[in-house]
Simulated assay, not measured.
Amino acid sequence: MKIKIGSRKSHLALVQTNLVINEIKKHCPSAECEIIEISTKGDKILDKPLLDFGGKGVFVTEFEDLILNGNIDLAVHSGKDLPTTLSTGLTILATPMRADCRDVLITRANEPFEENKLCTVGTGSLRRSQQLQGMYPNIKCVPLRGNVPTRLKKLANKEFDAVVLAAAGLDRLGITANDGYTFTYLDPNTFIPAAAQGIIAIEGKSDTPIASLVEKINHVPTNICFNCERDVLSLLGADCHQSVGVYSYIDNENITISAFIGNSGIKTVTTTLAEAKTAASKLAGELL
């Protein structure tokens, strides 16, 4: 079986795509997977915040057009980059096991982050900015875009006192505190991640032989959290113009969902897995 898989060109995106290919080959060793590297609008425009030119869809639209036109079979996305609505005819076929969902405050080694000191923190996320300023009133958040190495290079060059990145991306790239940084991991129960942070999502057409194969690598608990968090996001009508975070985790037969939007404060609900969708709706209602 030949499979054409679309991926962004960054090192992290290619690592994630190869993780997916490795999982596919566990179920179909004879699969011939070809990576098609694509530069999205979001990759090309780095001097403006995402909210200035289209939001999350700027990382996805080109892939969806290529799938619908038959140029590629699948697209591998970071779950947090997906808009709440996909193009007609497409679906998320699988979500492999979630990686670390936490955010990480990163400073240069031996230069600790001082709570009472005026510091500049690089982040392009309204969600991160709002939560950081709630924790550290003296900091100034400055827009920062680009791939992980680019952001860390700016930190090393002292353009910022700190940056905030997703733990999952750092882990997948093999970047650790031993590379000259101090990592402060932020508790996802109090510093709420982006919906689906740490989750890889594989998009394609349903009801095809390739879809049937890809569905075998789906991790059910991750998929439940993925859909639950995106349901909250959708019900809130939230986009990247708003500060919003959603995080869920499963404990035995229960799921706990926490979220905030704007200045709402964090709201949390816990319910059975069977009631996850209802709980997402309830939580969104409490936040609106």
Results as ranks from 00 to 15, higher is better:
residue 1 M to H: 09
residue 3 I to V: 07
residue 10 S to F: 05
residue 14 L to A: 08
residue 16 Q to V: 05
residue 16 Q to H: 09
residue 17 T to E: 05
residue 18 N to D: 14
residue 21 I to V: 15
residue 26 K to M: 02
residue 26 K to R: 07
residue 27 H to V: 08
residue 28 C to E: 15
residue 30 S to M: 06
residue 31 A to F: 02
residue 33 C to H: 04
residue 35 I to T: 05
residue 35 I to M: 09
residue 41 K to M: 10
residue 42 G to C: 02
residue 43 D to I: 03
residue 51 L to C: 11
residue 52 D to V: 09
residue 53 F to L: 03
residue 53 F to G: 00
residue 53 F to Y: 07
residue 54 G to A: 04
residue 64 E to T: 12
residue 64 E to L: 07
residue 65 D to Y: 10
residue 65 D to K: 15
residue 68 L to F: 01
residue 70 G to I: 11
residue 71 N to H: 08
residue 73 D to K: 00
residue 75 A to Y: 00
residue 79 G to D: 08
residue 86 L to V: 02
residue 90 L to H: 08
residue 92 I to V: 12
residue 95 T to V: 13
residue 97 M to C: 15
residue 102 R to F: 01
residue 104 V to G: 00
residue 106 I to P: 02
residue 107 T to I: 10
residue 109 A to M: 08
residue 110 N to V: 08
residue 117 K to V: 07
residue 117 K to C: 10
residue 118 L to V: 10
residue 119 C to V: 04
residue 119 C to M: 13
residue 121 V to M: 01
residue 123 T to A: 04
residue 128 R to A: 07
residue 129 S to E: 12
residue 130 Q to M: 07
residue 132 L to C: 06
residue 133 Q to R: 05
residue 134 G to F: 03
residue 135 M to D: 02
residue 137 P to Y: 03
residue 138 N to S: 12
residue 138 N to Q: 10
residue 140 K to W: 03
residue 141 C to R: 00
residue 141 C to Q: 02
residue 141 C to F: 03
residue 147 N to C: 07
residue 149 P to E: 06
residue 150 T to M: 04
residue 153 K to V: 10
residue 155 L to V: 04
residue 156 A to K: 14
residue 156 A to V: 13
residue 157 N to K: 11
residue 162 A to G: 01
residue 164 V to E: 03
residue 168 A to G: 10
residue 170 L to T: 06
residue 170 L to E: 00
residue 172 R to T: 14
residue 173 L to H: 03
residue 175 I to S: 08
residue 177 A to Y: 01
residue 178 N to E: 14
residue 179 D to E: 15
residue 181 Y to T: 06
residue 182 T to G: 06
residue 184 T to Q: 11
residue 184 T to R: 10
residue 185 Y to V: 08
residue 192 I to W: 00
residue 195 A to E: 04
residue 197 Q to G: 08
residue 205 K to Q: 15
residue 206 S to W: 15
residue 207 D to R: 15
residue 210 I to R: 01
residue 213 L to A: 05
residue 215 E to V: 11
residue 215 E to G: 03
residue 218 N to L: 05
residue 218 N to Q: 04
residue 220 V to F: 09
residue 223 N to K: 07
residue 225 C to L: 11
residue 228 C to D: 12
residue 231 D to M: 14
residue 234 S to E: 14
residue 235 L to H: 09
residue 243 S to T: 02
residue 244 V to R: 01
residue 244 V to Q: 01
residue 244 V to D: 01
residue 246 V to F: 03
residue 249 Y to M: 07
residue 253 E to L: 09
residue 258 S to C: 07
residue 260 F to D: 00
residue 262 G to I: 06
residue 263 N to S: 12
residue 265 G to L: 05
residue 268 T to V: 06
residue 271 T to R: 10
residue 275 E to W: 11
residue 277 K to M: 11
residue 277 K to P: 09
residue 277 K to I: 14
residue 280 A to Y: 12
residue 281 S to M: 14
residue 283 L to R: 02
residue 283 L to F: 01
